[in-house]
């Protein structure tokens, strides 16, 4: 198993965080993991992405030109990374902020209205968790329980935040899983 996942969005949307959670959960599940952020002068408000690699073997390159999956929270990120995804891969698209679907037909597309769902759940900041959940549901790559556990650790001092984030993750997971089943049935 070797999986390279790129997550991208505006700075402040929490893409680095969901990458870290995925890497941390992967580590807990016994995988080799790397997490590599883009870093640049645009600390907030600019575009921002990170790459997570999960593997059963020691990881060589921590950056990926041909990721297996892409989670995009805004349009510039979809424009930038859509073509890089490997055939047969997964693209999770935040339809709340992205007004088009991927043009690619050789990948599984998981549309998810991440911001709306997050607002519904009472934590507008949890859109990133919805998207992460959708990816986990669609890929089955990392166990959701592992991520939930890691979430609880990361926000140990703020139990309310843990709860809404876990709910967001759950909602996303269900959407991702359903989409995956739909694709399989096609």
């Amino acid at each position: 198993m070797n999986n390279e996942i790129v997550m991208a969005g505006f700075g402040g949307q929490g893409v680095l965080l969901i990458g870290k959670l995925m890497a941390y959960a992967g580590m807990k599940a016994g995988h080799e993991v790397t997490w590599m952020p883009s870093y640049g002068p645009e600390m907030r408000g600019g575009t921002c992405n990170c790459t997570v690699v999960l593997s059963d073997q020691p990881i060589g390159s921590p950056i990926s030109k041909r990721p297996h999956a892409l989670i995009v929270l805004n349009l510039p990120s979809l424009d930038k990374f859509e073509d890089s995804v490997r055939p047969g891969g997964i693209i999770v698209v935040n339809t709340s902020l992205i007004n088009r679907l991927p043009r690619r037909t050789d990948v599984t597309v998981v549309p998810v209205a991440a911001n709306e769902i997050a607002v519904e759940l009472g934590n507008a900041k949890a859109a990133n968790m919805v998207a992460l959940g959708a990816y986990l549901g669609a890929s089955g790559l990392v166990d959701r329980d592992n991520v939930n556990e890691v979430l609880a650790e990361a926000f140990a001092s703020r139990p309310k935040v843990v709860a809404t984030n876990q709910q967001a993750l759950q909602r996303g997971y269900e959407i991702g899983q359903a989409q995956c089943v739909a694709v399989a049935a096609r």
Binding site: M27, E32, V33, T34, W35, M36, P37, Y39, P62, I63
Partner: peptide
């Protein structure tokens, strides 16, 4: 290099 400084690994 910047990569080894910024990367997260176990």
């Amino acid at each position: 290099d910047g990569l080894i400084g910024q990367i997260m690994e176990p």
